[in-house]
Amino acid sequence: MISLNVNQKTYQVDVDPNMPLLWVIRDIIGLTGTKYGCGVAQCGACTVHLNGEAVRSCVTKVSRAEGQKIVTIEGLSANNDHPVQRAWQEIDVPQCGYCHSGQIMSAAVLLRENPNPTDQDIDEAMSGNICRCGTYLRIRKAIHIAAEMQKTKSNTGQTKNSVSPVKI
């Protein structure tokens, strides 16, 4: 049994410790917002926060995440209202939408560490996230909008603090 804390909930999962965190999150825990795109840390669709860092869950063994704090797109905010999510909605960034869980999780780390990113900062933070629909110009613009939103309203919906052990 491996104990995982995902979006402030504790899960006990009976899996091979070498299983990538991605497949545990998607297929065992059932949170499918985190996507599989390449399996080799090339595309960023599987990005989750591990202790606040934008790790690629497809190459992260579940054992690395044991007892650590994991946040997925479902847990980024309680009401789909993290500044990055709101900015994404404000200018309709996604097209097919498949990559955007990962894009948003990466952008959230960028904005936490750099509240005023330049275009270059954005490029350096976001180049690990591929968007096949090519929404990159909007991603850049939305991050600037989110930076402004973050300044005017710092409180964003936080996931409710619940710890409910779930047996899988």
């Binding site: 949170l31 917002g33 980024l76 939408g97």
Partner: peptide
């Protein structure tokens, strides 16, 4: 469909 695509709730075949 955009809000569904910013919180992981849009369901794709996968």
């Amino acid at each position: 469909d955009v809000p569904l695509k910013t919180n992981g709730s849009a369901q794709f075949g996968i």
